[in-house]
Design a protein around this nucleic acid. Sequence first.
DNA 1: GCGGATATAACCAGTTCTGGCTATAGCCGA
DNA 2: TCGGCTATAGCCAGAACTGGTTATATCCGC
Lengths: 214, 214
Amino acid sequence: MQIHVSIVEDDVKVRGSLARLIDSTDDFSCVSQHPDAENALREIPVIKPQIVLMDINLPGMDGVECVRRLKQLLPQAQVVMLTVYENTNIIFEALTAGATGYLLKRSSPEQIIEAIRDVHGGGSPMSSHIARKVVASFQKVTNPVHEYEKLSTREHQVLDYLARGFLYREIAEELKISYATVHTHVRHIYEKLHVRSRTEAVTIHLSRRRAPLA
Amino acid sequence: MQIHVSIVEDDVKVRGSLARLIDSTDDFSCVSQHPDAENALREIPVIKPQIVLMDINLPGMDGVECVRRLKQLLPQAQVVMLTVYENTNIIFEALTAGATGYLLKRSSPEQIIEAIRDVHGGGSPMSSHIARKVVASFQKVTNPVHEYEKLSTREHQVLDYLARGFLYREIAEELKISYATVHTHVRHIYEKLHVRSRTEAVTIHLSRRRAPLA
DNA sequence: GCGGATATAACCAGTTCTGGCTATAGCCGA
DNA sequence: TCGGCTATAGCCAGAACTGGTTATATCCGC
């Protein structure tokens, strides 16, 4: 059984090189390539690779945010961040968001393959097994898996109206608040749920409280 | 047990008069008033009145379309159309869309109460029981209750992408068609499902095929 | 072979949403 | 009492969606 790897990297050259390197290794197979976070978040959950190599610097949504969302959609995937600099803060954030390890882009082909194998074998490339424990420890206290529960009462109310197709204007009328406030609540809801549109928020909402569907 | 009546009518005066007339009648109760179709479609399914008096001429969505949708949401409600002129075509359309009878606005209070009682008792004000059979006959051959099943294969595909939050642009890329075509498909989907936004369409979609919800 | 359904495509004008900022007031817990 | 969270509100720009209309090509069934 081969190890399936997906790559998220905006630079075509880097992406291509990595893909070739992976495919040239017997027990590895590059099953997909993604130029940006949005594309990755839609396709990777369907493709279900075991390993994801993710560039930290992506256009639009950055790699850290992408990992956070991807781990919600496909928790079993092991994500390895790709970075040019060994920036402790960002790498730390990526790990908190759900990444298992990281890889410097200047690494040799051998080191890259080694790192992937390490992750797949249960390690965390950087300082291996010990580091993974560290990672696991803060993942517990952070990530409530889904922040849906963290919505305030008011935000839940607004989300409920969103799900019923109300316009902002109409929600404002119903709740006796201004359009601007509805807008603000919606922005907060999107941030907490890590989504970018009404449809995505509503999908999460409906999956939580199955009941009010005519 | 009183008969609960809701009124959909944009003219405040007419609405008020009808409400007072209904409330002044012992076994009737006006449980809600709605100035337009959108408002009616949202609130009436929750209020669940037995009878709905619906103006044919509403601002925005007209009364006929409103009946069509309302009957999908609350099939047990008996809808009586309110009209100024005895326009055969429109009344016919309203009946096809799901109305049970109609009422001329110039009718006397006695006739109005009589008509509501008639509908509640199983008749169809206009030519009573005989007319109802006629109505029932074309309601069968038309209204497939929910046109969801009438979506073409392509439309189902597009709806599926809509549900996953894809932009029109992205759907176009995925299906290798133009943005304009995606737009056209979406319009057709909305027409068939009788909705006016992505969220409403997606809600119907998800309620049909419970499965792909991360 | 004609009518109907389907799939494709485009133009235009509004409307609505999304995101980045800023800001104030109240409340509660450390 | 300071900091954080919640709820409220506004401005602005750009992106995306909705609806009305028109048009062409294909395929299928009667």
